[in-house]
Design a protein around this nucleic acid. Structure first.
Lengths: 167, 167
DNA sequence: CCATATGGATATGAAAATCATACCGACAAG
DNA sequence: CTTGTCGGTATGATTTTCATATCCATATGG
């Protein structure tokens, strides 16, 4: 019960191809955590609220798909961190678009944003679009500084406490 | 066993919120078909290669989530077409970003593109980015004319024939 | 009037994925 | 030598998804 080779029809459609790799909730949430700076198994697990098997299974598959790589950060005991590859980092625009759609269309009026980005290149707020709302240039992950809004920071802390409590 | 209310923790994270609605392969493929002009149940089913239940279940859920609406196109017998709502149409940038990532990172060298977009506003090819590669302006679905590449058109025809054969 | 076709599904039972919960092994710290 | 931490596995129940077959209302052709 180890092979998960994702045997799908080899369509030319790039959307279907992409969905074969990232077409499930957990994978996308893991990517979100990695873009947010998480590196260790338990950070990722806690941040996504996945079960350990789901986290382990997704990370394994994502490594096989070339989205992430495992890097040892300690011999004895041997432990690894998970890092985005170039392919993984290239996914950022999709996540940004998904975030914009989610903020705009999946929230009740008055609900707070989760994260505000500052565009380092111009110093202004970046907004939701693919272009900086302050300077109009296009946004890459390296040019952005994320700051969690207070409400979202609280939510994350509670999640973390719940996780620590149960583990 | 009918309620599928997607009971998830009400997180503020817009990515998680979005994934609750579109976090599975079939939903995204249905959106692809709708953006490609499909309107009828069997077009959608054939284009995604979903089973009838999957197509029916997704369409029902997507209607409940406000992504699509059913419009009668015939009384007696009562039949409906599926149309994107504004919320559904707003998903286009995500699909475009996913397409760009899929074309760039999920294909072997030499594999053909599936679709080429022409930017109606300038008449040039639009490329993969969120901005038109000819004129640099940002791309909306209404400004784009899609043309399937020959290889992809063949693939679609074969799929359709297989579907007709089996149905 | 009867047979077949069409659009839009639902039914059924098997197979696979996911879940909650518990546990494990290596080491480090007290 | 007991307890804690990190990074997972194992287990068994539950839930989804799959392939395949069937269904219903209506139109259409003969």
């Amino acid at each position: 019960m180890e092979k998960k080779v994702t045997k799908r029809a080899p369509t030319l459609c790039p959307v279907a191809r992409a969905e074969d790799l990232v077409g499930d909730r957990w994978t996308v949430l893991v990517l979100r955590e990695l873009f947010g700076g998480a590196r260790r198994f338990d950070e990722i697990q806690a941040g996504t609220e996945a079960t350990p098997q789901m986290a382990a299974a997704r990370l394994k598959q994502m490594e096989a798909d070339g989205l992430i790589e495992r890097r040892p950060y300690s011999q004895r005991p041997l432990r690894h961190e998970y890092h985005l590859t170039e392919k993984g980092r290239a996914f950022f625009p999709v996540l940004l678009a998904l975030r914009a759609w989610g903020e705009t269309w999946c929230k009740a009026p008055g609900e707070a944003r989760a994260v505000e980005f500052t565009h380092d290149a111009c110093g202004g707020p970046a907004g939701l679009g693919p272009l900086c709302e302050t300077c109009g240039r296009s946004l890459s992950h390296d040019d952005l500084t994320a700051e969690r809004t207070p409400a979202y920071a609280r939510e994350r802390e509670q999640r973390l406490r719940r996780f620590k409590g149960l583990s």
